Amino acid sequence: MVCTHRDMIKITDVEPVSKGCEECLKSGDTWVHLRICLACGHVGCCDQSKNKHATKHFKETGHPVIQSFQPGEDWKYCYIDRQYLE
């Protein structure tokens, strides 16, 4: 299966909107790992974090492709196709 949402990637040079999960920073909460939206640069926490803000961002905006925002990682994932992009 091939991801059919690559055309929704607007950011090629990822410029984060914040240095951590935007919502967790505002509420004073913590996260496990960070993900960045490749459509708008939103930084959210992963599904292992209690708030799951990256997934919530996808559900609210429809932006399907995220990238790991962890140092040394560059994998991408499509929520709609439920697969990693190469």
Results as ranks from 00 to 15, higher is better:
Gly28Met: 06
Ser49His: 05
Ile80Leu: 12
Cys45Val: 02
Leu38Arg: 09
Lys52Trp: 06
Trp31Phe: 12
Gln70Val: 15
Leu25Gly: 04
Gly62Met: 10
Thr61Ile: 10
Lys50Glu: 09
Val32Arg: 02
Asp74Val: 07
Val14Phe: 14
Leu85Lys: 03
Ser68Tyr: 04
Cys78Leu: 06
Gly20Leu: 08
Arg6Asn: 08
Gln70Arg: 14
Ser49Met: 09
Cys78Pro: 00
Gly28Arg: 02
Lys59Ser: 13
Lys10Gly: 03
Leu25Cys: 05
Trp31His: 05
Met8Gln: 15
Lys52Met: 10
Gln83Asp: 08
Ile80Val: 15
Gln83Glu: 10
Lys50Asn: 01
His42Tyr: 14
Met1Gly: 12
Ser18Gln: 12
Gly44Glu: 04
His5Thr: 06
Gly44Tyr: 02
Glu60Lys: 11
Asn51Ser: 03
Lys59Trp: 14
Asp7Lys: 09
Ile9Met: 12
Val2Glu: 09
Asp29Thr: 02
Gly72Lys: 14
Leu34Ser: 04
Ser68Glu: 00
Met1Arg: 13
Pro16Cys: 11
Met1Asp: 12
Lys19Ala: 06
Lys26Cys: 07
Thr4Asn: 12
Cys40Gly: 08
Val14Asp: 10
Lys10Trp: 00
His53Val: 05
Asp29Ile: 00
Lys56Gly: 11
Tyr84Met: 07
Asp81Pro: 00
His53Leu: 10
Lys19Phe: 00
Leu85Ala: 04
Arg6Asp: 02
Tyr84Thr: 01
Ile9Gln: 04
Leu25Ile: 12
Arg82Asp: 13
Ser18Glu: 08
Ile36Lys: 03
Pro71Tyr: 08
Asp81Lys: 10
Gly28Ile: 03
Val65Cys: 13
His63Met: 11
Thr12Met: 00
Asp29Val: 10
Pro16Glu: 09
Lys59Tyr: 13
Glu22Ser: 14
Ser49Asp: 01
Leu25Ala: 05
Lys76Leu: 09
Cys37Arg: 00
Thr12Asp: 01
